[in-house]
Nucleic acid binder design. Structure first.
Lengths: 336, 336
DNA sequence: AACTATACATGAATCGTTTCAGGTGATTTC
DNA sequence: GAAATCACCTGAAACGATTCATGTATAGTT
């Protein structure tokens, strides 16, 4: 049926130990043996049985990645970055999408533990600390993605959301806006809260008086954005904000739809609009969206690198990696 | 260190064989033993070592999924469907994104083979037939996704793209359009070609004279859509089409951006626009896009189900599953 | 010539499950 | 009441790789 290391050994006229050495420590084997074994492998079409390897050597060649919103292009980009890095190490990614459902989150953590992944990347939603602790004690290094680990218990890779919020509102103020609405939520989500905090800081430190109101949403989807836009437009015109800072690009796209419907192009002249994440759909919008860019691929790459390092050295100290966000200006905030 | 079945057996006062039976064939074990073993598992926090299980029993609990464009929300949805189905079987998904790069495709197929996945879902780009054959002879069932296997050599799950193209153009004609442009490519991609063929069939069968021109793109991205839109607008106005059928939603979004820029809202009055896939971003566009819906989650679910069935019965005959597309009408094709 | 160091090769033990032939005691059948 | 059937358990073998203590041959040193 399938070809094992024993078959290779026989064909090459060496012991199984030698074949294993060729596979793992070719430097310790004579060039002659390496050649013969390599040829046998080639001829037989042998591929290593990863299960046996994992069982005996205890090394895993997979890393789990659990994201909280598989529909969000931002996470797709992060995954892409992790994938690239993983491929260079011959590591495969086990993927799970929780769609903000804590029970799905639990299922995946158990499933990946059973698979004995080498490490786990996670953009957490629910309260997963207990599970993460158990994972760690089972020898699986967890790294938080897109979430700062405040108490420093786990490593994390994220972007400074407070700075991002500040960048966004600074930009709106600089382009002459004074009545700003922050549309986002749920505010229990750390990232959302931080973005709002940055926005507040910016508004308070401005040279002139700037009003900042909060329009809360229950999730970060396009539909919620549409609804929030409709609520804003329902007010008397003089109570409209002159700028909206959306908590992420999906919300911004929904808002844009509301704000240009009925043939009225309110963006950017009447109302400026800025998003967060700078996903490909921000640039692709009918009115290209200004946004706060997160280096998403880099986040993925870095997270994967860290998880491998931690797996290699279980005693390593957790560390927080924080990237700086970047303002990307497009038409949706063009000066009025 | 980690808890094994032996520890559980000892704690429960039974043999390892019994514990294994509780795990796999609880019906064959006395209720009393089941209870004692379950409790021991609970107390010790035992999780099955999948590597050992895979090694001995030869059953794999992972399925590979290789998609050709991880940025495309359509594939995210398909993956999501596969995920849902997989979870109900306790199966995890190894994910790989090739970004239309045949060498990446090869890397993933090898990697997944080494992992001994139970089966492989693949939206193919390059010529992978030889590799798929090798996979199959290694006992890994491949299923093509979003691609019809013309020669019937492998199972496939897809949507009738020809019918989709016909639906789109029928709709444009019904709403009074007569000069239609198909924007899409590369035409070597089976899906694209089929969509165009459907469009042609519709135009030729129309009661009145309908012109159909082809504006070819080199890939199916937003940027290509923007460029195609610019090329169209660069012509004298009387040579503009009165409707555009985009090969997928990403192209349509790019086209939309071109066609509403400069404050001119050409869609839908001057030019109607319809996409393909009905991704969430079609509904989310500034002018909500009409599109041809593919039952993307269902495609994923079905593909996963088939791959499991084929893995269970290696002698099963490949079968082609083809879903019907569905027309979704939104503002972008509102009657003029 | 005696000793040490170096370079490779060997093969049995091991990882944690599943499987299965065989065993035990209780219950049913004739 | 002997035989057959049933319901459960048991424990050792096996899956395919890696590891490591042990061995042998060759080169280098005194």
């Amino acid at each position: 049926m399938s070809v094992s290391i024993r078959d290779v050994a026989q064909r090459a006229g060496v012991s199984v130990g030698t074949v294993s050495n060729v596979l793992n420590r070719p430097g310790d084997v004579s060039p002659d043996s390496v050649a013969r074994v390599s040829q046998a492998i080639e001829e037989l079409g042998y591929v290593r049985n990863d299960a046996a390897r994992k069982l005996r050597a205890g090394v895993s060649t997979t890393v789990g990645f659990v994201v909280l919103d598989g529909q969000n292009p931002f996470y797709n980009d992060v995954v892409r970055g992790a994938e690239d890095e993983a491929a260079t190490h011959g590591i495969a990614i086990l993927y799970g999408n929780t769609d903000e459902d804590p029970s799905r989150e639990k299922v995946y953590l158990d499933l990946f533990r059973e698979q004995q992944v080498r490490g786990l990347l996670l953009s957490p939603y629910g309260d997963v600390l207990p599970q993460l602790r158990r994972l760690r004690s089972a020898g699986i290094a967890p790294v938080l993605v897109d979430r700062f680990s405040a108490d420093g218990e786990f490593s994390s890779v994220s972007v400074d959301s407070v700075a991002g919020g500040r960048l966004a509102v600074d930009h709106l103020i600089e382009t002459g806006r004074r009545r700003i609405a922050f549309v986002g939520g749920p505010l229990q989500l750390r990232q959302m809260n931080d973005r709002l905090a940055g926005a507040r800081a910016s508004a308070e430190n401005a040279a002139t008086r700037v009003d900042l109101e909060v329009v809360a949403t229950t999730s970060m989807t396009v539909d919620e954005g549409v609804a929030a836009g409709a609520r804003i437009l329902a007010r008397p015109r003089r109570e409209w904000p002159d700028a909206v800072f959306a908590g992420n690009d999906l919300l911004a796209l929904g808002l844009l739809q509301s704000l240009v419907s009925g043939g009225r192009m309110l963006v950017p002249d009447e109302i400026a609009l800025i998003g967060f994440d700078d996903t490909i759909f921000a640039a692709a919008a009918a009115v290209p969206l200004s946004s706060i860019r997160q280096p998403s691929r880099m986040i993925g790459r870095t997270a994967l690198r860290i998880v491998l390092e931690e797996a290699a050295d279980p005693k390593s100290i957790p560390r927080q990696t924080v990237f700086a966000p970047e303002l990307v200006i497009r038409r949706s905030t063009a000066g009025s």
